[in-house]
Every structure is written in C-alpha cells, then in structure tokens.
Design a protein around this nucleic acid. Structure first.
Length: 270
DNA sequence: AGCTTCGCCTGCTTGC
DNA sequence: TGCAAGCAGGCGAAGC
C-alpha cells in the first residue's frame, strides 16, 4: 500500500521525465476517481508540466502557467510514465488502466488502480491544509507533533495514521515507528506526547530506510520499473505476528486497532 | 469536537 | 475442485 516511501519512489521516477512536456489529451474512465471539488482533467490540456513533488502520500504535479494535480494512490494505484522502463508497461494487462494523460511527444502519464481507492484532485491552486493534508514528517517539528498528541485520548497509532496530524505514515510505517520508539500502539496520544521527538526521529529513520529500499512490497505494490520494493524484509513487526521479536525474542502480537491490523512486541513496547 | 466504525472496491486467501 | 465468504486497507462519511 503506497505510503510515503512508495509514493516517493514514484515521484523520483517521474520527476526527471515529466517536466517540460505539454498535455494534449486526457482520458479518464470513471468520474468517481475525482476527489470532491476537483476540476476536470481536460482543464490541463495545453499546460506544461513544471515539476513533480510529494506531500505526505500525495503526488503533486505542478503546471505552467498554472494549475496543480494531486494524485493519491489509495491502496493499489500506480502513476507511471509510458512508455515505461524495461517492459513494465501494462502491469495489469491494461485492465486497470484508468487515466491517460497524453503529451505532445506522444508519451503518456498513466494511472493504474486495481482496487480504485485512489483519487485525483485538479485545481488552479491548492491549500494542503484545507484538503486535510497535514505536515510531512520530514518537515514537522517535534514541538508540532507534541502539540498534536497532547490532550488526545485516541490511540497514538490512530493519531499517527491521521493525515492531518502528520501526513505520509500509513499502517506499515506506523507499526514500525512505534516498535522503534518502544511505545505500545494502544497508548493514548497524551501518554506518547512527551516522547514526540523520539517518535518523529524514529519515523524518519524508518521512512528513509524504506525509501532507500524502494518501499515495501506485500502484494500489489511494484516500483515504477515493475520490480518489487525491498523493505518488507526489514520489517521488525509488520506482518510478523507469531514470529519472535528481533530484539527480545518474545512472540509478536497482532491486534485490531483503529480498524487496522496492528503488530507490536508486548515486551519491548509499553 | 473528538473518536470510532462503516463503506467504497477488487483480488487473493481461507474454509466448507 | 469449486465456489462463497472473509479479509486487506487509505480515506472520507456517518454515527456515537
């Protein structure tokens, strides 16, 4: 599931390939792909890609002389330039190809999404806060996270998953961060608030390492070139229920918290 | 207001 | 072996 490291992997592939290209046609299969309030993709025709960046789990494409497109990949979305590198085109046999943005040079930006949980948002300008996209973990200050956690009775895990609190952390990296920080996922935000600096530090270490490995592939996710990411083999707790903790040997537990499968070491995380 | 649960959507896994 | 039910999960909406 594309979280920050997986989205960053897509952005790093797109950034050297899209800028300078002019949009000539757009095609979208289902209008329900648009997030509420979005302009149509056709409004981008004639505009030139300026740059590709990432905010939290969102891919942000900015255009000249104006306009911005946000893509949230949901669970199984893939945003790739076509033709792709090394036969990686049509990874789903074209069955799940939902958006095609054609450029003047005949190349395309393609969006595939098997489960259609992803969303597009097109606007002249966008305000991330209004869209519910909070600060990126690499920009958020320890004090900011502390303030966002203190006084909150919700579990620290659900707050890490809350994109308004910090954007980019999803189920895998929330579990991994909490393990590194030694905090039980069911603890309240208020309890964890004094440890905000450590939480933030650990989240950055985990996210940076995951980016270096091209993200985590559990099932659907593939890097832009079609190869799986490599970070899943470095998970300490996620997907390791019943296996021994790498630090103390205690069996890793799995519970459901905030509606998500949650993995932790009952001895290392208190 | 804050928190939890639900539903969207589809493919893979599990169980009868 | 085959089919139906269960499960996974980001995120917005609904409910408490």
């Amino acid at each position: 599931m594309p979280e920050l490291p997986e989205v960053e992997t897509f952005v790093r592939s797109l950034q050297p390939r899209l800028p300078g290209r002019r949009v000539t046609h757009t095609r979208l299969r289902h209008a329900d792909l648009y997030r509420r309030g979005s302009l149509r993709l056709t409004s981008l025709v004639g505009r030139i890609v300026e740059r590709v960046e990432r905010v939290g789990k969102n891919i942000v494409i900015r255009f000249h002389p104006g306009g911005v497109m946000l893509v949230n990949l949901g669970m199984t979305g893939r945003l790739v330039a076509w033709p792709g590198e090394g036969g990686a085109d049509d990874v789903h046999g074209g069955k799940h190809l939902h958006v095609r943005i054609r450029f003047a040079d005949d190349g395309e930006l393609r969006y595939y999404d098997a489960r259609r949980f992803g969303h597009f948002y097109v606007a002249e300008k966008c305000n991330f806060e209004q869209l519910g996209i909070g600060p990126d973990p690499f920009l958020l200050k320890p004090r900011g996270l502390q303030a966002a956690l203190s006084g909150r009775s919700a579990s620290v895990k659900s707050l890490l998953l809350n994109q308004r609190v910090v954007s980019g952390i999803g189920n895998i990296y929330a579990d991994e961060t909490l393990f590194c920080a030694g905090i039980h996922p069911a603890r309240s935000g208020d309890y964890a608030a004094p440890q905000a600096a450590a939480l933030l530090r650990h989240s950055r270490v985990v996210l940076r390492r995951a980016i270096e490995h091209g993200g985590s592939t559990l099932r659907d996710y593939r890097r832009p070139d079609g190869t799986p990411g490599g970070y899943q083999s470095h998970h300490a707790v996620y997907g390791r229920a019943g296996l021994p903790c790498l630090r103390c040997g205690t069996s890793i537990e799995r519970i459901v918290l905030a509606g998500r499968g949650t993995h932790f070491c009952p001895r290392c995380q208190r």
